[in-house]
Design a protein around this nucleic acid. Structure first.
Lengths: 150, 150
DNA sequence: ATAATTGATCAGGAACTCGTACTTCTTCTG
DNA sequence: CAGAAGAAGTACGAGTTCCTGATCAATTAT
């Protein structure tokens, strides 16, 4: 909760805002592209959880941790995703209490639409920064991601 | 809304997630620090709007644009911030319909608490990446911020 | 002078999010 | 081995966020 001291003067923003502003802009564009592709029944919060499903499926509690929401929130969002056909749930073979949330075919199709838009955005950002600078940015962000992720 | 193809294998995440994950982790830590400092009556959404107030004050509509929410949402959040003493409103001398939202002294104090925590986080990230790499990351992010911001 | 646009708030409602509580299953400890 | 402790996931209740549509007054455009 830092207020930039003088936005219009190009004074340095804090690192949090420097991460947030591009992220939020991308998120909006991707959301619009996904909606335009016909996936009109998914919300931003749902998609944020959806993104954290791993290839072999994820538990609700894992998704909660990784999306930084409570178990109840994750559970409700997963339920909505399942109802809309984006995910499916299968029993977790290692624990009778748990289930694995997996991406369903509708989810995979939506993912393809999102990926296409992200690719377009990346191309723009890469043009703006230059290829080597952009690639380095990605590598550096990967370091921060590994440092801060669950 | 892209699902990473295999999270545990360190496969590349999309740029959106690479920005979001560190950002979200920072946001949580800063929020906790601000709460611990006694500012327990502000919410995350309120602080996101608060952060976009410029030095000479901002209009509600400007905050809405910059925080990427509707005017009504911004108005409601500003009202809550004002009620809690974080901001004040003064008439905009250039337009009788508008007012300027400015940071009040309680807001400035909360900002100080947040800044201290951000400084601590930055020091960690700088240690992880190295100073020159971190500085370059910041500069690159500034380019993206300017490209995507309002 | 009139029409169109804009700044900000109201009203209503859905979605998001959390704390507390609970049941069942799994792991830990004596 | 048995009981205690902890974990997975959902239910309940409630506050917050966010949106659409609407409104009114001020400003800008024609």
């Amino acid at each position: 909760m830092v207020r930039e001291t003088d936005y219009n003067q190009g004074v340095a923003l804090n690192i949090g805002l420097l991460l947030y502003i591009p992220y939020r802009a991308l998120e909006d564009r991707v959301f619009e592209a996904v909606t335009a592709a016909g996936f009109t029944d998914i919300t931003m919060a749902q998609s944020r959880v959806f993104q954290r499903i791993s290839q072999h499926g994820s538990r609700v509690t894992e998704l909660a941790d990784r999306a930084k929401v409570t178990k109840q929130t994750a559970s409700a969002l997963v339920q909505a995703l399942e109802d809309a056909g984006y995910v499916e749930r299968v029993p977790d073979p290692t624990d009778a209490r748990a289930s694995l949330v997996r991406v369903a075919s509708r989810g995979a199709a939506a993912t393809a639409a999102a990926s296409a838009e992200i690719g377009r955005i990346e191309a723009e950002w890469r043009r703006e920064l230059g290829a080597s600078r952009y690639d380095r940015l990605v590598r550096d962000l990967e370091v921060l991601q590994r440092l801060t992720d669950i």
